[in-house]
Design a protein around this nucleic acid. Structure first.
Lengths: 117, 117
DNA sequence: CGCCAGTGCAACTCTAGGGTTGCACGTGGA
DNA sequence: TCCACGTGCAACCCTAGAGTTGCACTGGCG
């Protein structure tokens, strides 16, 4: 529901926090590989409990990285690229900004050096 | 020292962990804005102690996001875009991969639906 | 030469969150 | 119908790490 084009700070924060955990990244890899999966089947492929997986999925869901839908008595989760893509663009923009600033600083420093050697 | 071109998992991990903390992101913003700064001057602009800033700078340095150099009796830190840029590309690639996989799944699902309606 | 600013190191507190166990609930299949 | 499987909820442990305080060290400047 969040406007994808706006660089929302809160959403970037939640995505970064979500991706900081290695278990969650593994979870995302598994989900991306299998398309859809339940917390139970995911837990079978990881060295943690189903409950832990459920908590991680909740965090990932809050960050918009996955979404779950009920099918019968089970809940199938799938990966959502939008939030990840938005964060990637935010990060690329930040890196470009740093480059810009560093180039500026360097230019100014060289100009100052030329004035008073 | 790390080869920038290799998508090193460990370095991506350290960058994500480093960026997950809001104080560290603020620190990076300040550094990017000022070009160079010491732990002491940075601490003056933040609601935390200099020691906390030093620890954060150590984490950022280990992730390759900043680097510090001694000038006289003070240590000037500056931002390094390379690691951030590499992580941004890693993330963009991951998002693209997810898109690819989701499109595949969808295609297969539609083919199966066409077979047995 | 003495003093102060800026660092570095170490020990300590405290909370967020990753992980677990145990149980109750509901839905599908035999 | 009954039972088993997958989920949901709550309470709990335990460690990583964000932050603090206190002190020792050292290079610069008056």
């Amino acid at each position: 529901m969040t406007d994808e084009r706006r660089g929302d700070v809160a959403s970037v924060d939640s995505v970064l926090v979500a991706l900081a955990d290695p278990t969650r990244r593994q979870l995302l890899d598994l989900l991306a590989a299998q398309g859809e999966a339940t917390a139970t089947t995911l837990a079978e492929q990881l060295p943690v409990t189903r409950q832990a997986v459920v908590k991680h999925l909740a965090v990932l869901d809050a960050a918009g990285l996955v979404s779950g839908g009920r099918v019968g008595r089970e809940v199938r989760y799938a990966v959502r690229p939008a939030a990840l893509d938005a964060t990637a663009r935010w990060m690329a923009g930040l890196a470009a900004d740093w480059d810009r600033r560093l180039a500026n600083i360097k230019r100014i420093a060289e100009a100052a050096e030329r004035d008073s050697p």
